[in-house]
Design a protein around this nucleic acid. Sequence first.
RNA 1: GGAGAGGUGGCCGAGUGGCCGAAGGCGCGGCAUUGGAAAUGCCGUAUACGGGAAACUGUAUCGUGGGUUCAAAUCCCACCCUCUCCGCCA
Length: 431
Amino acid sequence: MLQWPVMLDIRLIRERTEEVKARLGARGLNIDWDLLLKLDQERRDLLNAVEELRAQRRTASDQIAKLKRDKKPAEPLVEEMKSVGDRIAALEDELRSCEADLNNIALSIPNLPHESVPIGVDASANVEVRRWGKPPAFSFPAKPHWELGEALGILDFERAARMTGARFAVYAGAGARLERALLNFMLDLHTTEHGYKEVLPPYIVNRASMTGTGQLPKFEDDLFRLADDDLMLIPTAEVPLTNLHREETVSEAALPLRYTAFSPCFRREAGSYGKDTRGLIRQHQFNKVELVTFSFPETSYEELEVLARHAESVLQRLHLHYRVVTLCTGDMGFAAAKTYDLEVWLPAQGVFREISSCSNFEAFQTRRAGIRYKGRDGKSAFLHTLNGSALAIGRTFVAILENYQQADGTVIIPEVLRPYMAGMERITKET
RNA sequence: GGAGAGGUGGCCGAGUGGCCGAAGGCGCGGCAUUGGAAAUGCCGUAUACGGGAAACUGUAUCGUGGGUUCAAAUCCCACCCUCUCCGCCA
């Protein structure tokens, strides 16, 4: 499944160890670099030895074939090769276990942050890049979306908890319709105006796909797994979209490739007990429209700006106040080299909340997933991948309820969504 | 789920133990022929990793992983996928 080299370019680690360690900074916490380098050396030595013996065996085998054709005795050579075969098998075993150990470490090394990423340990070191719009002015205390939603009869957390468990929600009536309006609006925008190809992928994928995008092996605890099949529910459409081209060499003429997909996302949210327990903010299942770009390495940072703008345009058309922040080294995801978060204004809490995350993964995922292109010079190279939510639909739903709420508890529907809501202008309590 | 057939290079397709990284064809590239083209002819045409300044060279790869053997596309085992029929089902 995995071919060599995977993960961070092992050659880069080998040749510029100190620089890699420094750039990884706080991210590279528990990596045994000495063991990694030792295993790398061991692997190359073993490989050399095995290849030499195999070459020897092949020559001898050809001789044996000739001897037998000429009806001459071949026994001594055959005997000799028996022991060579045993040595090859032994070395191959060693090589296999060496590579497994090496992979274990290497697959757990996070991506190198881009040089433009601010250094810091947590979200407090993130840097605001820009703001758009302004918060709504209310002459009344803003209510949280769960109160609005339950009062309007469009959100039902109680029944969801009974049928499934905590962190699930039932959308009903105009609520269900609003969720569907949002996803259709977003997909239409990205396919018709931004040039993305719409994809409707499987929501269940295998281990290789999860490893390709970086969810595995480190984050298995955050995934829902099917008991009998070693398949997992996707935590984001990034996984199937990026894995569309796993183990492929894509044609240069097709680049950049832009895909969008709607999908539900499933996350166990291990370790987040007690956080965001009320409302839609943190659910085990939520809907999202995702954007994925496969880019030439040279232009991937321009593509990151483009991608972020595409995600922002959804918020702009919904007239939702937001800001863009650059995540610092300590707040970025495992696979990302640089990430912009889009944070939408939530008046009830008086805070900006993440509603989209747009990242450049450089060659981190393509190296794991074996996604290349072939240039005009005939050489193949790993592509860069990028992805971003555009947007997380549940959180957009939250933002609309809270920002468009009226004094009487009704919610105005943003104009761009009305065609998707059969012309409905306002959500009122259903009778 | 049961029974059967099959998975070989960009594509089609031959190949049941060695001279097979793989015939032949198509496609593609170059050259010749032509005023130009078609047709024709000749030559070339997989990928990855390592060595070498390069020419070149070593190893691996015939769905995947194991095994047998001095030697595996070829034999054995397991798994995956595709197709046909049956069952079930939206």
